[in-house]
Write a protein that binds this DNA or RNA. Structure first.
Lengths: 137, 137
DNA sequence: CAGTATCCTTGCGGATACTG
DNA sequence: CAGTATCCGCAAGGATACTG
């Protein structure tokens, strides 16, 4: 699929979108832009079925509050499954749903692409910031 | 490339990431989650080189302020080129850079995927919300 | 251990008015 | 026309303490 064809298809799709679909699309992408969501998806993709604390250990910097909130969001979006062994000493495990695994499969090429092009991003930014500095001394 | 291989590759890549690379990756994805950024990229992908007002017309709901801000951000990220004809009656045109076009090419399959799975997302959400309601009457 | 409950700061996104 | 300058509400994200 070349560029023009791709744009044409996306144009057709976007035109056909109901307001609901468009809202959903934006919502999914907004969640994807959240601080921890994609990191959790990646962690679960790599680690399989993990407990709350195990995820926290693998994700340097996340607070309990944000981890719980993000997991709830992912669960609500159907991307993560929550398994609550109803024991007296709490035991809860999380894992990717099928939908979550497929989302991860969609995201990974994007991550790889971003990393592959990291230099171009940085270079563009430096050029932009320098131009700003020269314009406003 | 199957799922396991993909995860393995992404794992290797993420392990090799410097803090800078990781920050950059997250930043790009955060910007992608912003309200207008991807819409602008799509608009420019479809419409080619457009003036500020032309973009605004094609993007129902965006304010001057947010359009300018988003364009600046995209320009800073090297995704959009800004052409300022220095005339007395201001004339500025924007278009996707090569990097921007390639990002769009990365995003379109993701959009299509989200739309294709819209029902699954909605279904998951309804199930989740119902479970919540039952748990807290 | 897996959460809630508070409180706080920050920045996004929007509305409106003004300028070269 | 293509912006800037202000002011504002709100939600994201974080720090800390507490609970079943």
């Amino acid at each position: 699929m070349d560029m023009d064809e791709m744009i044409e298809r996306s144009q057709a799709v976007c035109d056909a979108l109901s307001d609901d679909d468009d809202g959903l699309k934006r919502e999914v992408l907004t969640h994807a832009g959240n601080r921890w969501s994609l990191g959790i998806v990646h962690t679960l993709g790599v680690g399989g079925r993990l407990r709350h604390a195990a995820i926290a250990r693998r994700m340097e910097g996340v607070t309990q509050r944000m981890l719980t909130r993000s997991l709830r969001q992912l669960e609500r979006d159907g991307l993560v499954l929550r398994h609550d062994y109803v024991e007296k000493s709490p035991r809860v495990e999380y894992e990717l749903s099928d939908l979550g695994k497929r989302l991860l499969a969609q995201m990974i090429p994007l991550w790889l692409w971003v990393v592959d092009n990291a230099d171009q991003f940085r270079q563009a930014r430096m050029a932009f910031d320098n131009a700003q500095d020269n314009a406003r001394p």
